[in-house]
């Protein structure tokens, strides 16, 4: 049975005319890694808020259809209860730091204090999360003295420590430098490998190709297509509709038009796939 189910979800923000999400059907299996791609304004963030309960509990407006996680309907569950099932991490690392705490250790414990977890269990869970996210060395630092990548790992740790069943990430690396982004992806991948259900909105197509089980292309509030990373990410309809496309796909597509890409292979997304393709082509060329 699917862990996350969206049925015919349509949502309109307050004081707006057109819905941002239009009749979304989506189901995500336990342990699955689903990536969501789409141009600006496609409704990616809104979809994240809908899954993580901020729609309808935080953002008012008009929601129709059904959002279920582990059999519970979002409308019938309080937000403070919902966040223990679905964790949300978003772009800006700075604004995810609560400001209520003076060390990283306390910052991570903040959510557990709110949930009324006993101090002994709290400490055990914070310790475990520090290891998991590789930020043990930052534990006594002020969250405000950290780099963006470190702050984002603290934000991620602060959510993971609450042990949600689903992790929703809305462009978690878009404000980070390459090193920070790699560190954050490392944690996300490790969580996925441990069996956590991950829903990731991301622009870095090559990372998606390497990690995701399934890709959903969102366009003007509707699901345009979904499938395996290779199917979706190299689809010829995407560039014209404003989707980001991997530079390796672009290169290989241009090469294919000149007959320089092997017909037997699909277009590549990652550097490794591209190298493989050109190798094949060169070894079979006269």
């Amino acid at each position: 049975m699917a862990l996350v189910t969206l049925e015919n979800v349509t949502y309109r923000y307050p004081l707006t005319e057109t819905p941002v999400l239009k009749g979304i059907h989506l189901s995500v299996e336990e342990g699955e890694f689903v990536a969501i791609i789409g141009p600006n304004g496609a409704g990616k963030s809104t979809l994240c808020y809908a899954i993580s309960g901020f729609i309808p509990h935080f953002f008012k407006g008009e929601l129709s259809g059904s959002v279920r996680v582990a059999g519970r309907e979002v409308r019938e569950t309080a937000l403070s209860e919902w966040v223990t099932r679905v964790g949300l991490v978003f772009q800006n690392p700075f604004s995810q730091i609560s400001g209520a705490k003076y060390t990283v250790y306390e910052e991570i414990a903040f959510g557990l204090e709110n949930l009324g977890i006993p101090p002994e269990e709290m400490k055990a869970r914070v310790e475990e999360t520090l290891e998991l996210t590789g930020i043990r060395s930052l534990a006594e630092r002020s969250p405000y003295s950290l780099s963006g990548g470190q702050q984002q790992r603290v934000a991620l740790a602060s959510i993971l420590v609450m042990r949600p069943r689903v992790l929703v990430l809305d462009e978690p690396t878009s404000q980070l430098d390459p090193i920070g982004a790699r560190e954050v992806f490392g944690v996300i991948r490790a969580m996925s490998q441990k069996g956590m259900t991950v829903i990731l909105v991301e622009h870095k197509i090559e990372w998606i190709a390497a990690f995701a089980d399934r890709v959903i292309a969102l366009h003007e509030g509707e699901i345009l297509m979904e499938g395996t990373p290779d199917e979706v990410l190299t689809h010829s309809d995407l560039p014209a509709r404003g989707f980001g496309v991997s530079r390796y796909t672009q290169t290989a597509r241009a090469a294919a038009q000149q007959g320089l890409w092997p017909d037997s292979l699909p277009l590549p997304v990652t550097l490794e796939q591209a190298v493989e393709g050109f190798k094949t082509r060169n070894s079979s060329a006269p």
């Binding site: 993580s52 403070s80 949300l88 978003f90 903040f110 949930l115 101090p119 959510i159 609450m162």
Partner: peptide, 15 residues
């Protein structure tokens, strides 16, 4: 949003 995501408004007694 960030502090709501961490259960700030939870009715359970805080520890």
């Amino acid at each position: 949003i960030a502090i709501e995501a961490r259960g700030f408004t939870s009715p359970r007694p805080k520890t």
